[in-house]
Amino acid sequence: MRRKVMSEWDAKAAFLTVPDDGWSVVGFANALPCHPSEAETIARYLHRKKLIWLSMRAGHGRVFPAAMRPGRGRPKARGVEQPPMIDPTLAGFLTQAHPTFLKMRLLLGRDPGGAWNENQAAKAEIKFALAVEATNLMTLCRTFAKKHPAIPVAALRDALWLDRPRTMPVVAETQPDLAMAGSEQIVEQPKGRQRLSRNLTDEERMVAYIEAAGAQGIAAYEIANKGKIARDRVAIIGEMFENMGMIRSALVRTSDRGRKGTRYFMSKFGEPLIGEGGRLVMV
């Protein structure tokens, strides 16, 4: 390095007023001025001469005033703040989703290729497995969106497409909410009928079945089969609830030629409509 060049750097540095919050290497190059490719070399030279303080952290440099440098020993590296490229919460979600994406990439790699009518069985199995993994990814997205309502769904979708641009089109085939132009809200997964707890008593189970049947009522044999309750026990419980006014019972048939049988109804639905021949009129 020529002495004349170094003396020019010394002269320029003498007129620099570095702010307390420092400059980035590019900001230092603009203030000197010099080409950005030479800025770090110049900063290291001026740092050795104690005209400035160059703090390096995780490969990123920042220039501070020389007065901020400790007098003895190696100076403590001042934190170099870099704005995050992606929300850390979204980055954590992408880490959770990577195993699912890896399975999908492996499945896509097993595609035998060829015409549409070749290897149809193998292609169908792969397509079904991909749909399952896409559903699993959608479940992850629903859980994340519910846990972090402040993060827009569009940001979540953009992060997925940015991270896996080759796999997301496959996901979008079965999960349109995750397509590039998807909706602003993730549709809730429809919930199935709630299963009765095994801890319910026979009485509680029977009332639950009758209430779930609605105005159409439910036959005694259906309660016995669903609830694993003996038929005579169903009759005893039904008589007890009927005496209490909770339910009604009727000897009806549901078809013109069917046999008559006991059917239970909740009292809140009123009297059951019974037509000619004892046939129940379905409303």
Rank of each mutant, 00 (worst) to 15 (best):
120 Q>P: 06
94 L>I: 00
83 P>T: 00
91 A>V: 11
88 P>Q: 08
110 R>D: 09
76 K>H: 05
114 G>Q: 04
115 A>Y: 03
103 K>H: 09
129 A>N: 12
101 F>A: 13
129 A>T: 04
121 A>Q: 14
109 G>H: 04
89 T>Q: 14
84 P>T: 01
97 A>Y: 06
99 P>Q: 06
94 L>P: 00
75 P>Q: 11
104 M>C: 07
100 T>W: 01
117 N>I: 04
129 A>D: 15
111 D>P: 00
89 T>M: 12
92 G>W: 05
105 R>V: 15
111 D>L: 01
119 N>A: 10
113 G>S: 07
120 Q>L: 13
81 E>A: 13
91 A>Q: 15
124 A>V: 00
114 G>A: 03
120 Q>E: 15
81 E>V: 02
124 A>D: 14
91 A>W: 10
106 L>M: 07
112 P>L: 06
92 G>M: 09
81 E>W: 08
77 A>V: 12
103 K>M: 05
104 M>R: 09
82 Q>I: 13
106 L>P: 05
108 L>H: 04
96 Q>E: 10
82 Q>N: 00
101 F>D: 04
124 A>L: 14
102 L>I: 00
115 A>M: 00
112 P>I: 04
106 L>E: 14
94 L>S: 06
125 E>G: 14
74 R>W: 13
117 N>H: 13
104 M>L: 08
85 M>P: 03
120 Q>G: 11
74 R>K: 10
